[in-house]
Simulated assay, not measured.
Amino acid sequence: MEKECSNETCTKESCEGCPSREKPNFRAELNSYSSIGHVIGVVSGKGGVGKSLVTASLANAMAAKGYRVGILDADITGPSIPRMFGLQGPAQVDDNGIYPPLTANGIKVMSINLLLPGEEEPVIWRGPIIANMVKQFWTDVVWGELDYLFVDMPPGTGDVPLTVFQSLPVEGVVIVTSPQDLVKMIVTKAYKMAQMMKVPVLGIVENYSYVECPDCGKRIYVFGESHIDEIAASMDLEVLGKMPIQTEYAKAADEGRFAEVLNEYLENAAASLKK
């Protein structure tokens, strides 16, 4: 019979082995028809910094190297990955689970947009329901054999990032930011959350770093001079890439042809994932 703890009788010795001392395990069980080698989160402290662009670019880079790759679109209220790759639902479903459709370059994708009647249907759900949906993308989706699964997180440090960090075996995160005045605060928030959840930060990617003049090649720093190197150094992090504004990438995403994009500015980021 287990001993009941009380403030009057508890000591360090008497409480050893007490079930109440055990930390709760929130880890979700992977779908039985799936095997995933590495789970990498792509996060940001705010929206509009190109997080999905970085997620899709990293997935393309690893697929081009011959790895089996998947993308879990955890941005339930603002999904964009299916549109970028020209994918439409509904996803195939049977007794084994939900089957993620393939992009033109062989990447498996699961997103709420592939389960809704139309991609423009709004998701008006409360936080706990959204978080549970993300967990189901891990437990109910038949991912098959994957070397890398990239999780495209919603911005901020709310319910969904917390659920992903607690429920999925995330090995590391890539922080995406832009060269604006608030960048240090934004990066620090994402960095501290990863620290609190004991998830390694693999490095930082800066988007919108500059625009290159098509005539003379001069770099124009639209959002001001970047300070990402100093910020990364202060946190002992690596800058994995600096991406300029590329209209070709945006056009490919808008037209559903992002499978054709090999983002040269993230070669170092892709190389770091191989480690």
Score class of each variant (00 low, 15 high):
238 E>Y: 14
63 A>E: 01
132 N>P: 08
18 C>P: 02
49 V>D: 04
19 P>W: 08
14 S>Y: 11
8 E>A: 10
245 I>R: 12
148 Y>C: 00
248 E>G: 12
212 E>R: 15
197 M>T: 07
158 G>A: 05
82 P>N: 11
15 C>W: 05
62 M>R: 13
253 A>D: 06
122 P>I: 09
184 K>V: 09
9 T>S: 10
225 E>H: 14
18 C>L: 08
15 C>V: 05
3 K>L: 12
213 C>I: 10
138 W>T: 06
110 M>A: 04
181 D>G: 06
267 E>I: 10
238 E>P: 10
250 A>M: 11
156 G>C: 04
258 F>K: 13
125 W>G: 05
252 A>H: 13
74 A>L: 02
155 P>E: 09
38 H>I: 07
126 R>N: 04
144 G>S: 06
229 D>K: 12
217 G>F: 07
62 M>S: 03
32 S>G: 07
34 S>T: 11
214 P>F: 10
226 S>F: 04
139 T>C: 05
48 G>L: 11
128 P>A: 05
252 A>G: 02
70 G>A: 04
200 P>S: 09
145 E>D: 14
158 G>W: 05
53 L>T: 10
122 P>L: 08
165 F>N: 00
52 S>T: 10
67 Y>W: 09
52 S>L: 06
272 S>I: 08
41 G>T: 02
62 M>Q: 12
213 C>P: 04
149 L>P: 02
234 S>P: 09
133 M>D: 06
91 A>C: 02
43 V>T: 09
14 S>C: 15
230 E>R: 12
24 P>Y: 09
46 K>Y: 02
127 G>S: 14
154 P>S: 03
224 G>Y: 07
39 V>A: 09
234 S>F: 13
232 A>D: 00
52 S>Q: 10
221 Y>G: 02
22 E>I: 13
139 T>R: 11
135 K>T: 12
149 L>W: 03
69 V>F: 07
266 L>A: 08
129 I>T: 14
144 G>T: 05
70 G>T: 04
34 S>H: 09
86 G>N: 05
270 A>D: 00
80 S>G: 06
23 K>I: 13
220 I>C: 10
248 E>D: 15
190 A>T: 01
254 D>E: 05
112 I>S: 00
171 E>K: 14
151 V>D: 01
129 I>F: 09
166 Q>D: 13
59 A>N: 03
231 I>D: 02
194 A>Q: 00
53 L>A: 03
226 S>R: 03
182 L>P: 09
75 D>V: 07
232 A>W: 03
91 A>Q: 07
182 L>F: 09
110 M>E: 01
26 F>L: 13
95 D>S: 15
5 C>P: 04
148 Y>A: 02
199 V>P: 01
88 Q>C: 12
83 R>V: 13
90 P>R: 08
11 T>K: 10
119 E>Y: 11
41 G>K: 03
222 V>P: 03
175 I>K: 05
6 S>L: 12
166 Q>L: 14
199 V>D: 01
58 L>R: 03
226 S>C: 07
140 D>N: 14
80 S>T: 12
96 N>V: 15
99 Y>K: 02
237 L>D: 03
112 I>M: 06
267 E>C: 14
133 M>P: 08
19 P>S: 08
